[in-house]
Every structure is written in C-alpha cells, then in structure tokens.
Amino acid sequence: MRRLRHVSLPLIALALFAGGCATAPTTSQPAGLATSGATGTASQTKPARTLSELVHETVATIDQMLGRYDAMLKTIQGLSDTKAAAVLLDEIGAYVKDDRWEKPDPIPEEKLQAAMLEEFSRPSRTVLTHTSLNKELVDLSRRLIALNNRTAELAASYAQGKTLRAYAAKMRREVMPLMAQLRALAVADTADTAGIAHLDAETKKILATSRQSLRALERETHSLESEIGGK
C-alpha cells in the first residue's frame, strides 16, 4: 500500500504539472497582420479583448494566485517534518528527470481529487496542494513570459500590421479607382485614335476631291476660253 502511494503520488503531481504544460497558451498570428503575402490582403481577426485588458486580467490572476500561495505557505510552515513529504518530493524530482515527463497519461481531475482524499493524509495533501500551487505559479510565470513575448510581438508586428492595413486600404481606395480611371482613359484614347484617323482620312479625301475638281474646272474653263477666243 505504501509502495502504491509512492507511485501514485508522483503520477498525480505529474498529471497536475503536465496539465499545466498541456494548457500552455497558444500563440496565434499577430493581430492586425495580413498573412497572405501573395495577395497582400489583410484578412485577420481581431482578438475579442484588447491587449491592455489581457494584461490586466493576467496580472489580477497572478495577484490572486500569489495570495493563495502565501496562505498555503503559512500552512506549510506550520506543519511538522514528515518523512512522507520528503519521499514524495524526492520522487517527484526523480520523475521529472524521467523521459515519461514528456508523455504524461491523462488522468481526469475528479479521479485525482478522489484519489487524494482516499489515499493521502492531510499533511501529504497539503504538500500536494503546495506542489499544485507551485505548478500554477510556474504556469502563471510561463503565461507571463508568453504574455510578455506576445506583447513584444504585438508591439512589433502591430506597426507592420498597421502599415499593411494602411497600404491595403490605399490600394483599395486609391489604386483600384485609379486603375479604373486609367482603363477609362485608355478606352477614350483608343476611341480617339480611331476617330482621329477617320477624321484625318476624311479631311485628306475632301481636300483631294476639291483639288481634283477645281483642276478639271480650270482646264475646262481655259479650254472654252481658248476655243471661243479663237472664233
């Protein structure tokens, strides 16, 4: 029974720890940044909460957890030394070094709680709770690191995203109408090219006909003048 306890305890702690690792904050594409380089369109979804709200929320959670940690620390400090706790943490440490650390077996939270109540004494549960709190703190620290990175990332990429959105808007509002206008100009130019060529040909034809007719009339007049003058 004691051996079983020694085996179960690290497993539970590990599960709690690994649960925290498994729920690591998933980093997503920076808000406000287009990912489509080919099209250049800024198709992204804005986060529901603002960055400021996210920071405040996390800070409040951290404060809350630190408060709980302090309270639990006082409880632990009031406990007498027990061998069970020393063995427990020793085994946790050994398990951390084990390669199974990376692949924990999923254990439902309810089962863990039930097992804790059945299998462990109050001091052991306190230590477990402390370990759990530690895990939460670590988790929070990790979230804080991620949040810091996320903040830096957003701060860096937001400017780019803003730039990109600005250009997308410019392309949509200025360049596209401009292209439509240029197409209209090109159509007008094409029509003009044909029109000018037609008018040019017509002008030349009018002039050529007039010259030809006038020459014929001049010849005929001169001919009549010569013939009648000679009579």
Partner: peptide, 24 residues
C-alpha cells in the same frame, strides 16, 4: 520554447508583411 515559437511567429509575420508590401 514559447519564446522561440513567438519569435518564429513574429518572423513569419514580418516575412508576410514584407511579401505583402512587395506584392503591392
């Protein structure tokens, strides 16, 4: 790891931005 992932995402975002601007 998260930090590296974040750096990678930021780099991807930067590359996407550069590609989009170049496309424009």
């Amino acid at each position: 790891q998260i930090y590296q992932r974040s750096q990678q995402e930021r780099e991807e975002a930067r590359v996407a931005t550069v590609a989009a601007l170049q496309s424009f």
